[in-house]
Amino acid sequence: MKSPDLVGIDDIAVERWILALGLEARAPLRFERVGNGRSNLTYLVTDAAGTRWVLRRPPVGPLLPSAHDVKREHRILSALDPTAVPTPGVLAFTDDPDVTDAPLMLMTFVDGMVVDEVSVAQALSPEARARLGLTLARTLARVHEVDLKETGLDTLASHGPYAARQIRRWRRQWEGSRTREVPAVDALADRLEAAVPEQRELTLVHGDYHLLNVIASESGDEIRAVLDWELCTLGDPLADLGALLAYWPRPGDLGEGPFPAPRLQGFPTRAELAGCYAAETGRDISALPFWHALGLWKIAIIGEGVRRRALDTGRGTGHDDPDLLATDLLPGLIRQAELVADEAGL
């Protein structure tokens, strides 16, 4: 009998699919939702022998165009498998309607620590937090070293100017997801559009690189897997660094960030993260404030998209945060972005 409590997958049909893949999986399989559910939905799969795998699928409910493309994420992860970028191994993909109502990807299970709750970060020593932050910056450098032609990822996205493309895209996302009028969002977009820096190189861009999207060792000195590649594209590498800073709140910031853990003692400052990345890559990061402000603006819009899905589908659907509608981070993120832009003279 299909489990009525398992949102997003038909466990009976998916079990049948996995057992036929030749992975030596032993029935019965147990499925468990993991993660915070604000991106593609993730499930831990465990067989009767205790072997584990991970499943991914898009969120339940209406989606914005181009968002949560699991088939594309499958392509990216498969291409990255032989590179120096740590990723989970891809085992299978299906969009067979007899198995699933949305694309499904099965991956290897990577053991380690995911800092997706403040309590996880609190359990680390200040020294481990410091190592973890700097390892995060060094691993980002590996992402930007990927040879696009060798991996076949040179056709992943447009080679045109990335910043302008991002502003256009996220303006459309804002129009498609807004739940109220916030003139400051459009005003900041105009300001960013007028301050676009010259693009000097084209690299792989993760598109959502931050502390919650990696699996790390508990010592903080190793990133074992970079996760959530659904927003990956081609563009300016500083976009990823700016996004990392946008997800890295510090004491004194205006409003609350989406994840407060980096405020804890020991985590590097944003300047230390940027300095570590610059030393690792040799890149000129003088345009970083633009990308930091753009990152904050994008996070605010992403949050509005999650809010829109919660309003459209209602609470209790299994993919939204029960407290989401009472927790509005958008005004604080936009104020912080304005401050970053002010200090940089944008």
Rank of each mutant, 00 (worst) to 15 (best):
A49Y: 00
R283M: 07
S158R: 13
A184I: 05
V45S: 01
K2P: 15
L6W: 00
A123V: 03
L21G: 08
L241M: 14
A337R: 15
L333G: 05
G252Y: 13
V85G: 00
C276L: 02
F290E: 10
T281F: 01
D96V: 11
A300V: 05
A326F: 02
T135N: 07
A84I: 04
G252L: 08
L339M: 14
A293S: 04
G255Q: 11
S119I: 07
A246C: 10
R129T: 08
S125G: 14
P251Q: 08
E338I: 07
D284F: 12
M107G: 10
L204E: 03
V14P: 15
A187G: 13
D186G: 11
R142K: 12
G282F: 07
T100C: 08
L6Y: 02
V54L: 13
L106P: 02
E338N: 07
I167T: 12
A187H: 10
V306N: 09
P183F: 11
H210D: 02
R56V: 01
R142H: 14
G235A: 13
G295C: 13
R172P: 05
P97I: 05
A184M: 04
R335Y: 11
D11I: 04
D10H: 09
R168C: 03
P86Q: 05
D11V: 02
L311P: 07
A137P: 01
A25D: 07
I299C: 12
T42I: 06
E175V: 11
L156H: 03
T108Y: 06
G332F: 00
R56I: 03
A187S: 07
H292P: 02
W229G: 01
P28V: 09
A271H: 08
P161W: 14
T87R: 06
M1W: 14
I76L: 08
P86I: 14
D328E: 06
E304P: 09
A187P: 04
A20E: 14
T151I: 11
G275S: 13
